[in-house]
């Protein structure tokens, strides 16, 4: 009985110590990525290649999801608003919810599962097949050559994807609200424009998605780099990337929203 309690306590202790250790390593890894970022900009073609893989190839899923989210927002928003006779505020509802929350958050979650998991799997496999080791032996720093360009590609792609998600979502809301249901087009746009502030709403959304881009890409890269170099290790790391980065996005979203939209 006592033995089992002791084992549980020491097990927990081990896990906590391990967690802190890993977190410390993650911080050092992140710092190293930032310090070795020079090459990502001096040889921008490296970063461009990664923008293609994480940004361009995520485009379809982002655009399709954005359109559907906009369509649903249009339908649900109309159902609720018409009870209070304020269908004309549909544009405001759709635009604000997309620009402030759904655009950055949904696209970050989709990005985590589409591009983040791919990054983890790729880096993990490069490690498992000794490509990272080979690069080190060829006197090329894998952090600078492999990790940093992927990081900056993610940071650049994320706000662009989020903006496209929001824009096509608003278009989806317009399709349902104005074209299908018949809300007055002038009111739809004008109410939206008077309620959505460029600096406070649009720019804050962009800032949010930049932060999410940093978080998701950094987590994906770290999980890949830290993965045990086996098939099992890589598949676990891929799962962890999606889980950790989704939770990180939601938690960061709460924090950022609390800072940005609490008025003062």
């Amino acid at each position: 009985m006592l033995d089992r309690a002791m084992a549980a306590i020491s097990g927990t202790g081990h896990r906590v110590v391990n967690g802190v250790w890993r977190f410390g390593f993650a911080c050092r890894f992140f710092l190293a990525v930032l310090l070795h970022s020079g090459i990502s900009f001096r040889r921008f073609s490296l970063t461009i290649k990664e923008i293609y893989f994480s940004g361009v190839l995520s485009l379809i899923i982002i655009l399709v999801s954005g359109l559907f989210v906009g369509l649903v927002l249009g339908l649900q928003g109309y159902e609720t608003l018409q009870k209070y006779g304020s269908e004309s505020a549909l544009g405001t509802l759709v635009a604000l919810s997309l620009v402030r929350e759904l655009g950055p958050v949904m696209s970050a979650l989709l990005f985590a599962s589409r591009a983040g998991s791919a990054i983890t799997a790729e880096i993990g496999l490069m490690k498992a097949t000794e490509q990272i080791s080979a690069m080190e032996m060829m006197a090329v720093d894998p952090i600078a050559r492999v990790v940093a360009p992927r990081f900056w590609a993610g940071v650049i792609s994320m706000p662009l994807l989020a903006a496209m998600f929001s824009a096509i979502g608003v278009f989806g809301g317009y399709l349902v609200g104005v074209v299908m249901i018949g809300v007055d087009e002038g009111q739809f746009w004008s109410q939206m424009q008077s309620a959505v502030d460029f600096r406070l709403d649009v720019m804050n959304g962009v800032i949010k998605s930049c932060v999410f881009g940093v978080a998701v890409t950094a987590i994906a890269l770290f999980e890949g780099y830290d993965a045990p170099p086996t098939a099992e290790g890589v598949s676990h790391a891929t799962t962890r990337t999606v889980v950790t980065s989704s939770l990180a996005v939601l938690a960061l979203d709460f924090l950022l929203t609390a800072f940005m939209f609490r008025g003062i």
Partner: peptide, 27 residues
Amino acid sequence: MRRRMGMLFQFGALFTDMSVFDNVAFQ
């Protein structure tokens, strides 16, 4: 020092995202 060393890894460890030519040209 490593620039003057060459290492052949167990399974080659070729960069899978590059062609044979680019692999050899890498260094």
